[in-house]
Amino acid sequence: MSQLSHINQKGEAAMVDVTDKAVTKRQAMAEGYISMSSKTLDMILAGEHAKGDVFSVSRIAGIQAAKQCANIIPLCHPLMLSKIQVDFEPQPGQNRVRIVSLCKLAGQTGVEMEALTAVSVAALTLFDMCKAVDPAMCIDGIRVLEKQGGKSGHWQYDGDE
């Protein structure tokens, strides 16, 4: 197992020094799910939710969250993101919504945390907007699907890890 990168030689938490790393194109995709009652999902899909278009609000929340990642996760580097995308895939047969994010930049460190943060906050926003009608919703399955760039190259989740 490799060394943890956010621990210094004294065992203390430390931000990784990326000063000498090459600037490369990097991107990461993440996903997560929010399960809900069929009634709640039908209400969202029909545009009948009292709070309006919950997907639009949740998308903006996810984008904003990715941009603020370094402010909420202590050892993340502030990044100049060039692309943030948050998409919703309703899955009525499973009474859930799949949330997928994509983050890109040209930089010295990866964007996995930003992609995960976008998905997480988009899911939390969906929960917040729908909790009055469905307090039993469940957020789960948040993970990185793919990352590209840097010295580690391309990695993709294959379901066996």
Rank of each mutant, 00 (worst) to 15 (best):
T19D: 06
E161Y: 11
R26T: 02
Q64D: 08
M43W: 01
R143I: 09
A136Q: 14
S82R: 07
M137D: 04
L41F: 03
E112I: 04
V57F: 05
D158N: 15
Q91K: 12
V18H: 01
V97S: 01
Y157C: 06
V133E: 11
L145V: 11
Q9T: 03
A22N: 12
K151L: 09
D17M: 10
V144S: 05
V23I: 15
G47S: 08
P135G: 05
I99P: 04
A66E: 03
S152E: 14
L79M: 15
T109N: 05
G47Q: 11
L79F: 11
S101H: 09
M29V: 08
A13H: 06
Y33I: 08
S82T: 15
A70P: 01
V144M: 14
G107N: 11
G32N: 02
K25A: 15
S38D: 13
D158P: 00
M36T: 12
L145I: 14
M137R: 06
V111A: 10
Y33K: 13
C69Q: 08
I63E: 12
N71L: 13
S38V: 06
K25L: 12
T19Y: 03
G11M: 05
K67A: 05
Q3L: 15
A50Q: 13
E114L: 03
E161Q: 14
K21Q: 14
A115H: 10
I72H: 06
Q148R: 12
S152A: 14
G141H: 02
L4N: 08
V111C: 14
G52N: 08
T19M: 04
K104A: 14
G52R: 07
Q68Y: 05
G93K: 11
H49W: 08
V144A: 09
A122S: 13
M43D: 10
M80V: 14
S5W: 00
A136Y: 10
I60K: 01
D17K: 07
G110D: 07
A14T: 14
W155V: 10
Q9F: 01
M15H: 08
A61T: 03
S35A: 15
S58P: 02
I7V: 15
L126K: 04
D20H: 11
T24W: 09
A65N: 00
M129G: 09
S82M: 03
V97W: 00
G150M: 09
A122M: 06
M15R: 13
C103A: 13
S35P: 01
E31G: 02
S38Q: 15
F127I: 01
N95F: 02
D134C: 06
V121N: 00
Q9K: 12
I142M: 08
G62H: 03
M113N: 01
F88C: 04
D17W: 08
G93S: 12
G110T: 04
N8Q: 10
G107S: 11
Q3V: 12
V18T: 00
A28F: 06
A22F: 07
H6F: 12
T24F: 09
D53W: 10
I99K: 05
G62T: 03
E31C: 14
A118W: 01
Q68W: 00
I44Y: 01
S58W: 04
Q68M: 15
T19I: 03
F127W: 15
C76G: 07
A28D: 09
K147P: 05
P135L: 04
L4R: 02
V16W: 08
E89W: 02
L41W: 02
L102A: 02
S58R: 03
D20W: 00
E114M: 01
N71V: 02
A115P: 05
I142Q: 07
Q108F: 07
Q3D: 13
Q108W: 03
A118I: 03
A14K: 13
